[in-house]
Simulated scan of single mutants.
Amino acid sequence: MIKITGEHHFAIDRTLFVFALDSEAGKVFNEKNKLVTGIGKVNAAMELTQEIQRNRPELIVNLGSAGSRSFGKGEVVCCTKFIQRDMDVRGLGFEKYETPLSGIPPVLEYGLLKEGLPQGICGTGDSFEMNHAETDYNIVDMEAYPLALIAMKKNIPFLCLKYISDDAGSEAAEDWAVQVHLASEAFNKILF
C-alpha cells in the first residue's frame, strides 16, 4: 500500500508510476507498474492516454526531476498546482498561461498532498530552463501539466512528486546530469 495521507491509501499493484526517463525511475521501480513517456508535453500526454485505455489505474503518480530556485537540490516537492508555462495567447485577449477556449483556468489545481513534503507550483513547458526568473511557479519541468490534466479529466487520483535536480540556472544541465540518478532512491524512501 502507498499511504498518501491518513485517509488516502492505494494498492501498489493498481498504481501507475509515470516518469519521463528511465534514469529517473532507476531500478527501484522495475517491478512496479511503470510508464516511461519520453520527454515533453506531447509524449507525456500521448503515452499516459494510451496506458489508461489499456489498463486504468486507481492512482497515477508522476515522479521526476525538476529545476527550482526556491527549493534545494535533492529535495522532493509535492505539486498540486500546475501552469503550462509556454502557453501565451495574450495577443488574442486571453490570460497568460490560459489555454484558449478550454474552460481550464491558467493555474490547474489537481492532485493529492503527500504528508510531510513541501508544496510547489509546477511550471511545465517544452524547454529546459536555464535562466528561470518567473515568479508564478517555483518548479520547472517538462511533463507534469498534461499528466495532471489527463488524470483530472479521467477522474483518477493524482500525486506529483518532483526531485529537485538543479536550480534552473546557468549550471542546470550539468547539475541535472549528476542529480537525476539520485531521484529514484529519494522517491523510494518517501513512498515505500
Rank of each mutant, 00 (worst) to 15 (best):
E58P: 01
D167S: 01
D86C: 02
M130W: 00
F158G: 04
S23A: 14
A168H: 04
I139D: 03
P105E: 04
M46R: 02
A133N: 08
D88Q: 02
L117P: 02
K3E: 14
L147R: 02
G116A: 04
Q119M: 04
L63M: 07
E7N: 15
M152L: 05
A168C: 11
D86R: 06
V28Q: 11
I156S: 13
K114L: 11
D13T: 13
N138H: 00
F94Y: 15
A177E: 13
E58I: 04
D126Q: 14
E51G: 03
L149W: 00
I12K: 15
M1W: 11
D126G: 15
V18E: 01
G38V: 01
V36T: 13
D136L: 12
R56T: 12
S127D: 10
G64E: 06
Y137T: 03
K154A: 13
D126E: 13
I190Q: 08
K81V: 01
N30F: 11
G169P: 01
I12H: 09
T124P: 06
M87L: 10
G67S: 04
Y145C: 07
T80E: 01
P105Y: 05
S102K: 06
V178R: 11
K32D: 03
Y97F: 15
M1L: 12
T49Y: 05
Q84A: 12
G93H: 09
V89Y: 06
